[in-house]
């Protein structure tokens, strides 16, 4: 389990990164926290010809709350999100606890997680839930892709190999949002992750959104509008059943498709209840 050879390059700003990626060609890759990439390289499942290390780029590690919402710099560590108090975005700090373990969170980056595009990854699921926009920079300039279009399949995203994620923008606060998940062992990737966002009055749902991880090739938006329904346990349970009926999850060693459906029902109900609380 030793990686294949590659050439190492260090970038000091975003433009430098883009230029180096362009020069090094298709098989070059960005190296951020390395918490997904290096593990895959050790297995030789990933064998980039060159790595451009972006961790020395200054000024990309930030959480900026503005009138519109929240901007997260690509190099913001999971741990920074976990320990921050971000008004209206408590869901991010809370969800960070689900990502791996303390040392993983000290090293892994927000942008890296989005770029990696694991369908169960907390940041990917929440980006879709909160309708974030992914800010990419490349040789053709800057562009923004809605998270709903960014994740395109099994570890596939809209980012081109010569582009870099520089920021993730969350357009509006989500005081009533939650993410929950299940894995047998603490710190592991979720078998199923469920996230929910609500607008609600004391006893009635105004708008709702539910997004799942681990049930498809990318985060899956559940088609269920709870508007007008009472904000109670029964509604959450029913929504869970609706979600479970909609998904057709894959089977693997961590759980069969049927099991993932059952988890979906349970976890959606829990996420909604937590979001409403």
């Amino acid at each position: 389990m030793k990686p294949a050879a590659f050439t190492y390059h260090r970038a000091y700003d975003v433009n430098d990164t883009i230029a180096q990626l362009a020069e090094l060609g298709q098989d070059a890759k960005i190296l951020a926290g390395g918490q997904s990439l290096v593990a895959m390289m050790n297995f030789r499942l990933a064998r980039p010809s060159a790595l451009v290390d972006i961790t020395r780029i200054a000024g990309l590690d930030y959480l900026e709350r503005d009138a519109q919402g929240l901007r997260v710099g690509a190099l913001t560590r999971h741990r920074t999100v976990e320990t921050a108090k971000i008004d209206g975005f408590g869901v991010l700090s809370k969800a960070a606890r689900w990502i791996g373990h303390y040392p993983i969170r000290c090293r892994g980056t927000f942008g890296g997680s989005i770029a990696h595009g694991d369908s169960t990854a907390e940041w990917c699921v929440l980006a879709v839930l909160l309708e974030a926009r992914i800010v990419l920079q490349g040789p053709r300039g800057r562009r923004e892709v809605p998270a709903t279009e960014f994740f395109q399949g099994f570890f596939m995203t809209a980012a081109q190999p010569d582009e870099m994620i520089v920021e993730v923008r969350f357009p509006k606060p989500a005081p009533h949002a939650a993410l929950t998940e299940y894995s047998q062992r603490q710190g592991d990737f979720a078998i199923v992750a469920a996230s929910a966002r609500l607008d609600l009055t004391e006893d009635e749902v105004l708008t709702s959104r539910v997004v799942l991880g681990g049930v498809g090739q990318q985060p899956v938006v559940v088609d269920a509008d709870l508007a007008g329904q009472p904000a109670n346990e029964e509604t959450w349970r029913a929504a869970g059943e609706v979600a479970a009926a909609q998904v057709d999850p894959p089977s693997d060693g961590h759980g069969s498709s049927a099991y993932r459906k059952k988890l979906t029902a349970a976890l959606v109900a829990r996420a909604l209840a937590e979001a409403a609380a």
Partner: peptide, 29 residues
């Protein structure tokens, strides 16, 4: 009793070849 099993697919390929798949429990379990 609860976590560990070595598994194979139908061709006899190991499907528990990493510690992500073979669940040695942690201090939480």
């Amino acid at each position: 009793a609860l976590y560990e099993r070595i598994t194979f697919d139908q061709e006899g390929q190991p499907t528990s070849a990493t510690l992500m798949d073979y669940l040695v429990p942690t201090a939480t379990e």
